[in-house]
């Protein structure tokens, strides 16, 4: 790692001020950023650790019945807290990385990084979550803007993520066996006004909504309906050692059908 100064703000305002000054970067749980820094692929003068800000840790439910998760909340906490009220989300959080990664990794860090193979972006997009920052609220459809790219401005901090709870939902993940990230994973969420289907791992543009499936499932909520759809096009799908574009496209369909079948 290149050396840096580690700053430990206690409040969001302090953190924002630190991030506004010079070459600084925010550190969430560090489960992606620290390995990146170890490989010397990231360099900064000052690293602002968000782990000391109590205000962005923890979970609650708002007046609209949405579940609100502080940006600094660990995957382990989400997995534990929502096993009953939003089991699909809890199940997703409980399968990210491994237990040690889940102790440190945070929802805010995962969403801000928007790795094309991360789990949380699929949940946020399919649930039509609102990403709350220290300056504004951003809808999930506007938040994700392609691989490793989001609507966040320099220095903007995710303080909370608000998830409407669907009637039914499930997350089906087919893992890339080495990294354990999704090779393809699909989050399906059925709301009263329609179905949303978000796919991660597959596209070189990052998480995306599979609109054909959403349309079909909104009309007829059944796994068989998915079987009747053509798989999304293989162009634009990631092709690597672990699977080519055609395979990933095929898996999108398989995982979507399984998610519908398993939705609770």
């Amino acid at each position: 790692m290149y050396d840096f100064e580690l700053l430990k703000p206690a409040t969001i305002d302090e953190a924002a001020a630190m991030l506004a000054e010079g070459d600084a970067q925010a550190l969430g749980g560090g489960q992606t950023l620290i390995p990146t820094m170890k490989a010397r692929l990231a360099q900064m003068d000052r690293l602002v650790a968000l782990s000391g800000i109590d205000a962005i840790r923890g979970v609650c439910t708002d007046d609209d019945g949405r579940i609100c998760i502080g940006g600094g909340t660990s995957h382990a906490t989400v997995a534990r807290e929502y096993a009953k009220s939003y089991p699909a989300l809890a199940s997703l959080a409980g399968r990210i990385g491994d237990p040690a990664v889940r102790s440190r990794g945070t929802i805010g860090g995962s969403l801000a990084n928007n790795d094309p193979s991360a789990c949380y972006p699929a949940a946020a997009l399919a649930s039509n979550a609102t990403i709350v920052t220290n300056t504004r609220d951003i809808g999930a459809d506007d938040f994700f803007q392609g691989m490793f790219t989001t609507a966040l401005e320099e220095g903007e901090i995710i303080t909370e993520v608000r998830f409407p709870v669907p009637e039914k939902a499930a997350y089906e993940k087919f893992i890339q066996p080495a990294s354990r990230f999704p090779l393809v994973a699909v989050f399906v969420a059925k709301f009263a006004d329609g179905v949303r289907v978000a796919v991660t791992g597959a596209s070189s543009d990052g998480v995306f909504r599979w609109s054909e499936a959403e349309q079909a499932l909104s009309d007829d909520w059944s796994a068989d309906v998915v079987a009747g759809l053509a798989a999304p096009g293989a162009e634009g799908m990631i092709s690597d050692l672990h699977g080519d574009g055609a395979y990933r496209a095929h898996l999108v369909k398989v995982m979507t059908a399984r998610a519908v079948k398993g939705a609770v």
């Binding site: 580690l6 430990k8 550190l27 560090g30 489960q31 620290i34 390995p35 170890k38 690293l47 650790a49 782990s51 382990a76 237990p99 040690a100 990664v101 102790s103 440190r104």
Partner: peptide, 15 residues
């Protein structure tokens, strides 16, 4: 760390 399993290679000492 504080009772939870953590990968000691992926966390900063000062933190």
């Amino acid at each position: 760390v504080d009772g939870a399993p953590v990968k000691a290679c992926t966390v900063l000492a000062q933190e």
